[in-house]
Design a protein around this nucleic acid. Structure first.
Length: 528
RNA sequence: GAGCCUGUAGCUCAGUGGUAGAGCAUUCGACUUUUAAUCGAAUGGCCGUGGGUUCGACCCCCACCGGGCUCACCA
């Protein structure tokens, strides 16, 4: 290892992880690494899905840089798991009820668009991953089981059945302890994934014997070819063993599962993969984010208000520390990213910079923005921007060279800032009702805005409008004159401070400004 | 019961074995026809407590105190 890679190792966690994987491969004599990410049957992709694949991709890329060895990323869907309950957020729930307990790939698609519910969820997962451009290979548990790819491993599990039961049994409650087996036969008639006591294990035949509790019928079921599947922790372990997985990360809620599955893999005679446990995301109250509670922030919500790079930036930083994930963290994440991209240009060690990792395929030539996102949000709020043109008008006044062509990221940020302002800042504004004096002055201003500027001095339209505003304030004898501007901001824009008003009118439009005044005046009448 | 995270400026948080950092907030100043974004500066910290390792600890180790989460059914 070179001196430089040691620096990287210290400074960026993906390289630290890559180093652990490199050590594992060396010990095993492997020349290709397999990364895995897993997806539960409950299904729809969420922010945790993004974080897991993004982080795994970063480690994978670091591994390639570090060792020069090839690797694969397997996105593995547990689509053979039984349907446990009917989800709340799907149509045809009545229909689904009849299929509870069957593997998801044997349940009809309630949306009617795919050949099974499992296939539907898989398609959504892939579309989600593809939308971010992740590089991965998709794997279906049902396919792997039924095609026989797991057969050798399943027979091996059967041969070690007792050891595996002994590992898991102490962790179970008294009820499950009595009847536990890692083998779940699929009922030959109903197709249901059976959780039943296993009466006999026949290693020679590769089968298990069990009794249907409903009918009392005894069945002997092969463990291979998709006639049976494994219970969760044994399933994970078997998959690691069968595919020789080198790396997988998971949330801290799965710490016990990782320990148990690792013990099972060792019982099977192999070494578990390198594992990383990451901390969970919390909402603004410090509660765990869960889809069922609907707290926290969704990927879609984040992407409404900031670019994907900012989400990646948030996910990059310190995976093993608990972080709060709610709207307020978005601007900072965006600015962190912008700063990192800027710092990348003359970084001594670019690999220590999150932006280097975030852009897995290389940092674009035109990355970065001359204006930070926080400042942009502030500006959008101050001028009450409701269109990109308005915001660009103010930006150009200070950075004449700025344009969507030269700074594509800024162009995107402008749109995000408008959305953020519209949804979070604007609704919180409090518009004060005008006093009688202000009412008269505002009415006068509206009238005179409707007439040609004529004798009003000034070289540009913005200056003439500014002078008009100034003149109206003086004529109505506001003292100090600042009170007139306070009135404009508080009554028209719902804030205590604002932009130079002439420039505002010029960009916002004279007609729209008149309408703004009339709205404010009518609000006065409503209140009275 | 087991495990994990966390305690740094008023707030939200970065941080590295070698003189404490950012953003926001506050105060002052510049620009401005007495109004904004902006720009400059200042104020502000026994880095939870007590031990230990070290020439040197916010950082590493131990204990304690405080805050919080997760798992103990299924996956």
């Amino acid at each position: 290892m070179t001196e430089q890679t040691q620096i990287q190792t210290q400074q960026s966690w993906p390289f630290r992880e890559a180093e652990r994987i490199a050590a594992r491969l060396q010990a095993k004599g492997k020349s290709e690494a397999l990364f895995e990410t897993g997806y539960g049957p409950s299904g729809l992709p969420h922010i945790g899905t993004f974080s897991e694949v993004a982080r795994t991709s970063w480690v994978r890329r670091a591994f390639g840089e570090l060792t020069g060895l090839p690797s694969r990323l397997l996105a593995f869907s547990d689509d053979m798991d039984g349907l446990r309950k009917v989800p709340d957020n799907v149509p045809n729930r009545e229909m689904l009820r009849a299929f509870i307990g069957r593997p998801l790939t044997k349940v009809p698609d309630p949306f009617g668009t795919h050949e099974s519910f499992g296939a539907h969820n898989n398609a959504r997962l892939r579309a989600f991953l593809d939308s971010f451009g992740f590089s991965y290979e998709f794997a279906s548990s049902s396919d792997y089981y039924s095609s026989g790819r797991f057969d050798d491993a399943l027979l091996h599990v059967l041969a070690r059945h007792k050891e595996i039961v002994d590992i898991i049994r102490p962790t179970l409650g008294p009820e499950r302890r009595a009847t536990y087996s890692p083998i779940l036969p699929i009922h030959p008639r109903s197709g249901i994934v059976m959780q039943v006591p296993i009466e006999r294990v026949d290693v020679e035949q590769g089968s298990v014997t069990w009794t249907d509790p409903e009918t009392g019928t005894r069945y002997e079921t092969a463990v291979t070819g998709g006639a049976a599947k494994l219970q969760w922790k044994a399933d994970w372990a078997m998959r690691w063993y069968a595919l020789d997985v080198d790396y997988e990360m998971s949330g801290k809620d799965l710490i016990d599962s990782v320990k148990l599955s690792s013990a099972i893999v060792r019982a099977l005679g192999a070494e578990p993969p390198v594992c990383l446990t990451y901390e969970l995301f919390l909402d603004d109250q410090g509660q765990k984010i869960s889809k069922s509670k609907g707290n926290g922030l969704s990927v879609e919500q984040w992407l409404d208000y900031a670019p994907p790079e900012s989400l990646a930036q948030f996910m990059y930083h310190a995976p093993q520390r608990a972080k709060r994930l709610f709207f307020d963290v978005i601007p900072r994440a965006a600015d962190d990213y912008i700063n990192n991209v800027a710092a990348l240009r003359d970084a001594e060690d670019p690999r220590a910079n999150p932006a280097w990792h975030i852009h897995t395929d290389g940092v674009p030539q035109v990355a970065g923005s001359p204006i930070g996102f926080g400042m942009l949000l502030n500006l959008a709020s101050v001028i009450n921007a409701d269109s990109p043109e308005m915001l660009w008008g103010f930006i150009r006044a200070y950075i004449p060279s700025a344009s969507p062509e030269t700074s594509p990221l800024l162009a995107r940020l402008v749109n995000y800032a408008i959305a953020y302002n519209r949804d979070f800042v604007a609704p919180a504004k409090r518009y004060r009702a005008p006093t009688a004096l202000e009412q008269a002055a505002l009415g006068d201003l509206a009238t005179r805005l409707g007439q040609p500027l004529g004798d009003i001095p000034g070289e540009t339209e913005a200056e003439r409008l500014q002078n008009l505003v100034y003149a109206v304030g003086k004529e109505h004898k506001f003292t100090p004159l600042k009170a007139w501007f306070d009135c404009l901001y508080q009554v028209l824009l719902g804030q205590n401070e604002g932009p130079r008003f002439g420039g505002f009118i010029a960009l916002y439009g004279v007609a729209r400004t008149i309408a703004l005044i009339q709205t404010a005046l009518s609000r006065r009448q409503d209140a009275a």
